[in-house]
Design a protein around this nucleic acid. Sequence first.
DNA 1: CGTCGTATTTGTTGGACCAGATAACCGTAG
DNA 2: CTACGGTTATCTGGTCCAACAAATACGACG
Lengths: 247, 247
Amino acid sequence: MSGRTGFRAAVEPLKISAVDRLVDEIRAFVAEQGLQVGDALPTERELGERFQASRNTVREALVILRAYGLVETRPKAGAVIAGDHAEAVRRVFAFHNGVSPDSFRDLQGFRRIVETGVGEHIILHATGADFDRLDAVNDELLAADGVEELALADYRFHEALVALGGNRTALATYRLMRPVIVDLMHVGKAARPARAETHETHGRIAAALRARDRIAFAYLLSRHLDYGLQFVTGSGPGAPRGDPGDG
Amino acid sequence: MSGRTGFRAAVEPLKISAVDRLVDEIRAFVAEQGLQVGDALPTERELGERFQASRNTVREALVILRAYGLVETRPKAGAVIAGDHAEAVRRVFAFHNGVSPDSFRDLQGFRRIVETGVGEHIILHATGADFDRLDAVNDELLAADGVEELALADYRFHEALVALGGNRTALATYRLMRPVIVDLMHVGKAARPARAETHETHGRIAAALRARDRIAFAYLLSRHLDYGLQFVTGSGPGAPRGDPGDG
DNA sequence: CGTCGTATTTGTTGGACCAGATAACCGTAG
DNA sequence: CTACGGTTATCTGGTCCAACAAATACGACG
């Protein structure tokens, strides 16, 4: 592992900073020592001595490692290997919470792709217990109070749907987008709570899956996802920061 | 914007470190000053003076900001606001490059979901010029030399396919997984180059799209994605580091 | 077994120096 | 006088050092 270590653009000449070097070395150290989740790293001074770097440099490297979710640090306890890497990715993703209005349609389109895609798997493989659980998650929506909780409950149903799909990558991706999805739902819910309505639509979607009716499922899901469009279309011009498709 | 700032788990008591405080303050500063991509931040010393923090603390905060892709720093040039947030997410994603063998099927399943999903859009909306470009990308595969280039060219065809889908989120997600996808392709190519074979299969997939034949497209794509399975199945026991589904 | 000190470790600060780049300055040629 | 090339001053990030504060793990001790 750790074949590609160069994070800097390939064009940049060999100008590896001491911090970046330390990041790689500490990573290699963790790997070759076979450190598992929960194991502790050497102290900062010790790392500095081992890799011939100042404690400040070690600290900056540890800051990066922490930002990347490899380690967690607590005073005195030191740095320990952390699990839950997805959380780090999600944090970075959530960090840029710019939900431009025009991206709503885009995101919903992606959700349609993923959810209809996993729907195929659900129709083929899900059991009755799975559907019961899906209904149970949906029912939690009725107990949700306030816009925030409502949006979260709404999201949870869809996440449960994706989870039933049995594809970890799809689920991870969906979770990755949670902040953005919830944010968008937040807008919709604020405009029109519609708790009972959402609950019923979810129920019909689940019922279509239970009936193995993929046509109805796709239709209901699409309509459900498009529903919120009325609250955002025409709300404003394009996004101010359209990312210029990177190279 | 910047409503939710708490990245730390909600359970953790209010124990904000000076560095984290600085991260938030600098972010707020960028927002309220309306700094755009390319604009420069104040110098480290100036930031330290403005926010009452040591330069070392400022540096640690800037390291985090850099890890999160908000800024880029170059010696002397200082820190400038960076675009291309997706790059930061991708970096973090690539950082944990644990490509466990058993995840191959999972990833391919996700790719199938995304690529068949965008295929629907392509069939409905793509023009002849779009298909020509897709073929052109595919032809680049013939010029690829070596396993590395081959894997990359293979990836590029699929990325071009997703790009034709017209969904930025799907494309961004696909790019996010590029390192993992290319890594897996790398394994496959090393076992069996099959350049001409891959090129022909891609060509048939593109032809199916051009003919608006969604059945053929789905079939060819599925078979293409499943193709590499023979090289990894039974190659070894489960992944050494299966992430324990985060909460 | 519980309590308390103490030593160790991280968190934070201030300062120092270096390498590199930019800007200001100056002398000279036209 | 102006334009240009070279030199110097200065500024900035990168790295390091020393020190103190705060938190806590660990062992001594009652």
